[in-house]
Design a protein around this nucleic acid. Structure first.
Lengths: 336, 336
DNA sequence: GCCTGGTCTGAAAGCGATTTCAGATCTCCC
DNA sequence: GGGAGATCTGAAATCGCTTTCAGACCAGGC
């Protein structure tokens, strides 16, 4: 018998029912409004609830109803400025539908994602999987469980699971178009995590870029401003490169910092373009040219998608939300 | 009967037990390792679990064990760059003790905090309350419920609840000392949210500042860089002020941006000092003088405190973690 | 006045696990 | 060979709530 040590004795529904002189069923009916109850009993129940300080046990409710009233979200990295915005929107949507939000973080380790999702499935009505890096096979296995699941910022063709993502490919294509139009012919891309689908999508855009005369060479980098800072040396050594594309804004800002230190002029010597438009701009004063995405619309839509799925098993087509190019001060025509 | 529509039929422990030809009790014992079981049965159970894809229902476990295996965290604003770092650390600690993390956000509205905490208490073993703005009486009422609760970044004298906080008062005192030593006599403080205890603690430091010859006048501002940007006008109009203290770094950076625009020299005309040391510095290149706090140690400690409380009802003294002054480029001796 | 039909209520059966308790089995020793 | 004691197992109670089901009660119509 788990007599929780030092824990206060929980007030249960039967305490309320005896105090009010009614049955537990009636208490439940009153509190949930699931059936008409004589108004005198209603009053007695409410009074008893108030004096005893009764709060229904969520685990018991979950068990009895077959629903936890909770959604789960898995993100790769809570500290990444990207995800809190999304979480905020998802949490608001969830709350508006009376659900709570459980959060887990894989800490950028694809190997643990699967277990975490499995754990979320044990205690959540639905799961939102943000930017999962796990291989397609694992993802397919999770989808096969038929537990409500929504994919966020990863789209896997052929996998029957509601998905929503930013159109990374379109965003990067826009960046390339912008640079090509300015007259650039050769750019360096500071590449993100190799397991990342978002990175793969960006890379895919470079093929179409070739069509309008821009050649992009890939430099292994990472996702942090430190990585961007460190990658600058390799870029400057490359011949004929006149523009730098960052995997994200942090990388681009890191590179920008290094270039300032080295006295490399931006945008006259090199154009620098970011990705994501994390809203540090007002703070950073770098006026980085970048592409932005509607982060909270994205979060909201993802939340709604999950809710839809929970309520009436809707299975929609993958949604891509467009990114929009923000031309600011760090891009311009190449020298010469 | 809640036959969840479209939901897959859940595999229960009794499915496993019949498949393995043992009792449910044995399955439970095998999976939890709570008692010796004959190895042949162990194998049969594991085989059945694997083929059926069984995962224990968390709600049922929670009910039976009287423990949810979950902690709850309430933060005022997920988008505030401060909290994700804390959440990250808390989540890691929780996970290392086999617990999940539920997250809620009050969206800076003190009025909803109470209900959210109440909800968290219905489904979590313990609750971590971050920077609550609610009045003391409400807080006291929650504490009186005897549900494990830890206070983070708010300390209420006389309230018997484990608390941990950054030493805001000490941090701001250090800032004042620094400015006084440089020769400043009069500073403006861009004040944060008035309901915030953290803001009150900073204000309290100005009394001691007077002792070493620094007078601080308070300008209503807010917590965002926009607010800091807008507040500059009022400060420049004030006579004899030679230094500006931001409620936090965002405010200070916003002010800095505005001052750059106006051509006001920093630090020769005005010193500007931030608070928190959010790690945008590498990105912002503003080299703001500020005070920093060990955010993830803070999160870790808070998590451990809660765990302690859950395991052996420990009730410790409030802990203050020190802040450390980071003198960088935006502070210097006053002109003249 | 009795029977039908409609409301409202409570007893009891789940929900899916854990845990107690008692019975079955097995060993060992006298 | 039989009894004591130690192991292991399963039946059943329990956690706290929801929901079904049937009974109690009342009003109204013949």
């Amino acid at each position: 018998m788990p007599l929780r040590p030092g824990r206060p004795p929980r007030v249960t529904i039967s305490d309320v029912s005896t105090a009010a002189g009614v049955s537990a069923a009636t208490v439940s009916r009153v509190l949930n409004g699931t059936a008409r109850v004589d108004s005198s009993l209603v009053d007695r129940v409410h009074a008893a609830v108030a004096t005893l300080g009764y709060r229904p046990n969520a685990a018991a409710q979950g068990l009895a109803r077959g629903e936890w009233g909770t959604i789960g979200v898995l993100v790769p990295d809570l500290a990444n400025p990207y995800f809190p915005d999304v979480l905020k929107a998802v949490s608001a949507v969830a709350r508006s539908h009376g659900r709570r939000m459980m959060v887990m973080e894989s800490d950028e380790d694809p190997a643990v994602e699967h277990d975490l999702v499995e754990d979320l499935m044990r205690c959540c009505d639905g799961v939102l999987l943000c930017s999962p890096r796990m291989p397609r096979a694992e993802l397919a296995e999770l989808v096969a469980r038929k537990h409500p699941l929504v994919l966020f910022n990863r789209i896997v063709p052929g996998l029957p699971v509601p998905s929503i993502s930013v159109d990374f490919h379109g965003g990067m294509t826009a960046v390339c178009g912008h640079l090509a139009q300015l007259g650039h012919r050769r750019a360096a891309y500071l590449s993100g995590p190799s397991a990342s689908w978002a990175n793969a999508e960006r890379l895919r855009a470079f093929e179409s870029a070739r069509a309008f005369g821009l050649e992009v060479e890939v430099v292994e980098c990472g996702a942090t401003s430190e990585a961007g800072y460190d990658a600058v040396a390799a870029v400057l050594a490359a011949a004929e490169v006149t523009a730098i594309l960052g995997y994200n804004d942090l990388v681009a800002l890191g590179a920008l910092a290094r270039m300032r230190e080295l006295g490399v002029a931006v945008p006259s010597a090199y154009s620098v373009v970011g990705f994501d438009d994390i809203s540090l701009e007002r703070v950073a004063h770098s006026n980085l040219t970048t592409v932005s995405m509607p982060r909270d619309e994205l979060g909201r839509r993802a939340g709604e998608l999950l809710e839809q799925l929970l309520v009436n098993g809707d299975d929609a087509e993958p949604t891509y939300l467009p990114m929009s190019l923000q031309v600011r001060d760090t891009s311009g025509p190449p020298r010469g």
